[in-house]
Computed example of a mutant assay.
Amino acid sequence: MKINRIGGIIAAASKKDAEPLLHIGTIPIIKRIVISFQQAGIFPIVVVTGTEEDEVRYQLSSYGVIFIPNEDCDQPELFDSVKIGLQYLLGKCERIVFTPVNVPMFTPDTLNRLLESKGDIAVPSCGNRGGHPIVLSDEIVPHIISYSGKDGLRGAVSSLADRRTFVPVNDQGIHMTVRDSSQLETHLANHNQALLHPTVQLSLQKESVFFNTRIKLLLYLILDTHSVRQACDRMALSYGKAWDMLNKLEAEAGYPIVERRHGGSRGGNTTLTPKGIQFLKTWLLLEDKVFRFTQNEFTLLFHDSGLFT
């Protein structure tokens, strides 16, 4: 079921190559990428974990991302993580943004340009060289997943060259990896300026908040997994806390959001009620409208007036 337009994947599994907790500036590179994704309105964001998994989950537990482990993370194959993320998001989004964690310095503007482009595969290009992130349509994803030839993701994308679009961007960060440590530090000030954006945290409250970003992700994952326990594992949330949040939401909303099915041959499950699904979809639509309005007005009022460049 497609719940949102654009999902994202960050491959951070390889114990040999990935360095998700490497600090550039004051934050780890994986947080830097999540912030860039969120600034472009991407939801859900899937982090394929492996190396330093516990610390990655701890660092991002409040950022509203989904954690999916790559059990073979001792193997350095990036394409394995790509497929894990794509298999999870297949059928859930119209388009999917992918980047390896070790390419953290692309800008949100580059993301927006890619998402505005047409075609099944959008690749950013700077100085006649392609880079990351790339954007895939849901239609092309099965072809990427089924590819078994040489050169991993690069080979899969090259095999579909007739469905690939190169998008010119003025962003050297699409090429910079953690191996370019001196370049990353030199580029840091520019990238931090590019990250400047207004943050609007939508919530619902009466006497206290009863719906926010974390509960939104919890509902999304319950709809996907039909299990509160599995949902909690994927978002680094305690089981007891999850039920406290759900019970409070239902009490304040005044109608059932989740449906609990006990027993049976499969041991029972939990999913969203039809009204719960409607609630989640409507909330995501509201968020998208508020996000677009805020970005447009910020550009008009601050950038176009010269208060920020």
Rank of each mutant, 00 (worst) to 15 (best):
Thr165Val: 13
Leu221Glu: 02
Leu301Ala: 13
Ile33Asn: 06
Leu237Tyr: 06
Ser227Arg: 07
Leu86Pro: 09
Val290Cys: 06
Thr299Ile: 03
Asp80Lys: 14
Ile96Leu: 15
Gln193Arg: 09
Arg154Cys: 00
Leu90Lys: 14
Glu94Ile: 09
Pro20Trp: 07
Asp180Asn: 15
Ser125Phe: 09
Pro256Leu: 04
Gly173Pro: 05
Lys31Trp: 05
Gly263Thr: 06
Glu185Leu: 15
Gly25Met: 14
Ser81His: 09
Lys216Arg: 12
Ile10Pro: 09
Phe211Asn: 01
Leu22Ser: 02
His226Ile: 00
Glu52Phe: 02
Glu94His: 11
Gly85Asn: 03
Thr282Glu: 13
Glu77Ile: 08
Phe98Glu: 10
Thr299Tyr: 05
Glu252Gly: 01
Asp304Pro: 00
Val65Cys: 11
Phe98Lys: 09
Gly85Thr: 03
Ile257Leu: 11
Leu111Trp: 06
Ser227Pro: 05
Ser159Asp: 08
Asn192Tyr: 02
Phe106Cys: 11
Lys15Leu: 01
Ser117His: 05
His226Arg: 11
Glu185Lys: 13
Gln59Ala: 15
Tyr239Pro: 00
Asn269Gln: 00
Gln193Val: 03
Phe79Arg: 03
Leu204Ala: 12
Ser203Gln: 10
Thr99Tyr: 06
Arg292Ile: 02
Ile145Cys: 11
Val178Ser: 10
Leu114Phe: 09
Cys93Tyr: 11
Arg261Trp: 01
Leu249Ala: 09
Ile3Met: 14
Asp233Arg: 13
Phe210Gln: 01
His303Glu: 15
Ile68Ser: 03
Pro142Ile: 12
Ile27Trp: 12
Ser238Glu: 09
Gly173Trp: 05
Arg129Tyr: 15
Arg32Gln: 13
Ser148Tyr: 04
Leu22Phe: 09
Lys15Arg: 05
Cys232Leu: 02
Glu259Val: 00
Arg5Phe: 04
Ala189Tyr: 12
Asn269Met: 00
Ile277Tyr: 00
Asn212Tyr: 08
Gln59Leu: 12
Phe298Asp: 03
Arg229Asn: 05
Val82Tyr: 07
Gln172Ile: 14
Pro100Val: 04
Phe291Ile: 00
Phe79Pro: 03
Ser182Lys: 13
Phe279Asp: 00
Ser265Lys: 13
Gln87Leu: 08
Gly131Asn: 05
His143Cys: 07
Arg261Glu: 07
Gly264Met: 05
Leu89Phe: 12
Pro124Leu: 11
Leu90His: 11
Asp151Phe: 10
Leu237Asp: 03
Gly240Trp: 03
Pro108Asp: 08
Ile140Val: 15
Val48Asn: 04
Ile27Tyr: 14
Ser208Met: 02
Met245Lys: 08
Phe298Met: 07
Gln87Tyr: 03
Arg234Glu: 13
Ile96Ser: 14
Val97Arg: 12
Pro104Thr: 12
Asn112Glu: 10
Val46Gln: 08
Trp283Asp: 01
Ile33His: 07
Gly173Asp: 04
